[in-house]
Write a protein that binds this DNA or RNA. Structure first.
Lengths: 219, 219
DNA sequence: ACGGATTGTAAAGGTTCCCTAACGTCCGGT
DNA sequence: ACCGGACGTTAGGGAACCTTTACAATCCGT
């Protein structure tokens, strides 16, 4: 079915997953991949063998994308994040809807659509959650975890990593709470368990310890 | 993999095919489906059994879509044609590219994207080739085959049926020759084998007998 | 140092969707 | 009346991708 040069959705999905695990600074091991893709560990084991024999990854001393695997992953991630931008900015979908939709579009968009969408959107550098779009001229800002901000300090939301998209409902909550890249707020309290209370756009929101340690902010 | 209520791409593909065969006034038989979908006859035979057991078609006295099958087909065709409009009008893709792309998008677009795209495009009633978009308020114009126009008579292109998308390169040719819905022209000659010569936008184009018998025009 | 959790793998199997080869049926023209 | 073609189906098989069950290896806290 896939034409010459194209790649199976499954290959794309696995390479993308490996790419994002690395991006999120999570150990790139089969067990993590199985969790993110919601498949059994044997399925991942088998697929790793296939990906290796296809030259998309190497497995000596940890799973790593080859040049070809990295290219494929970046293409998929780029399309995913461009699609998310399009779906939120132009079609006005919510974060959550856009994310799910983009998860399908990424395997289906052609190169010309990718280019046309990039043009239409004015070559954006990040997805709606602030994650960089591969191939764009994104400049990594000075950012630190929200959890490292002191009580009373101001901050600007910089980036909500892919990782948090796996907690059901969290994205919706963050979007509704105006916790979106570019917004600024203040930390008003820190609970001993790491939960932060923030003041953003006039209202107060509690953010759990895990999410706080992952969300990146700048001063 | 498909969530509850969703349908497998294969089911969608077959129902869409049946829908379009009917629309093109072609006998809805397995052999035609096999041709259009480029699969073997046994593959179609097997799938017909599956579609019937899923309640999407009936086969007593010819293949016919059930209510559910018709709904599914219309949804898919609607998404295909909306996508084509979007891809040509907004992203400036060529007919051919848009058609191929839409063939993948149709299985991937969610209901909210369908709605948002419809809004963005101003509820179009036809695809770029003039085929009606199911669910729109398309009004069938008085149209007759291009082949029935007399020499010297003027006409306006109304519709290029799906059928012609299966002749490789024909769509590209028609688009480049300005043979697009809404354009008007004149028949300047008819060859005995049915080939027409048209004058459109200042230049002359020959159109074969088969294409002429399928392309619809109004006066 | 040990026992429980985490991780990877092997074995066997299932579904979906497709293929080729081969057969039987039916229909229209000579 | 017969024969070639078109059509549908049976039989057998295969690739992709997933599952559950079970078993080794490895890591880690007390």
């Amino acid at each position: 079915m896939p034409a010459a040069g194209e790649h199976h959705p499954a290959f794309e999905e696995y390479c993308e997953c490996i790419f994002e695990l690395k991006e999120d600074d999570v150990d790139v091991i089969q067990a993590r991949i199985a969790e993110r893709l919601q498949v059994s560990r044997p399925a991942v084991s088998e697929m790793m063998r296939r990906l290796e024999s296809e030259g998309l990854i190497t497995t000596d001393g940890g799973i790593r994308l080859t040049r070809a695997g990295q290219d494929l992953a970046e293409r998929v991630v780029r399309r995913h994040r461009l699609a998310e931008r399009f779906l939120t900015d132009v079609l006005q979908l919510s974060w959550a809807e856009a994310h799910h939709e983009a998860g399908r579009w990424e395997h289906v968009m052609s190169e010309s659509v990718e280019a046309a969408m990039d043009r239409l959107l004015g070559s954006p550098t990040t997805c709606p959650h602030g994650n960089p779009i591969p191939g764009s001229d994104y400049i990594e800002p000075d950012a630190s975890p929200l959890s490292s901000v002191d009580v009373g300090a101001k901050f600007v939301i910089s980036r909500i990593p892919e990782e948090l998209e796996f907690t059901p409902g969290l994205l919706e909550f963050l979007e509704e709470s105006a916790l979106v890249p570019g917004t600024n707020g203040t930390v008003t309290a820190i609970s001993p368990d790491g939960t932060l209370t923030l003041e953003i756009g006039g209202h107060h929101v509690g953010v759990g310890a895990f999410a706080s340690s992952r969300i990146l902010v700048s001063a």
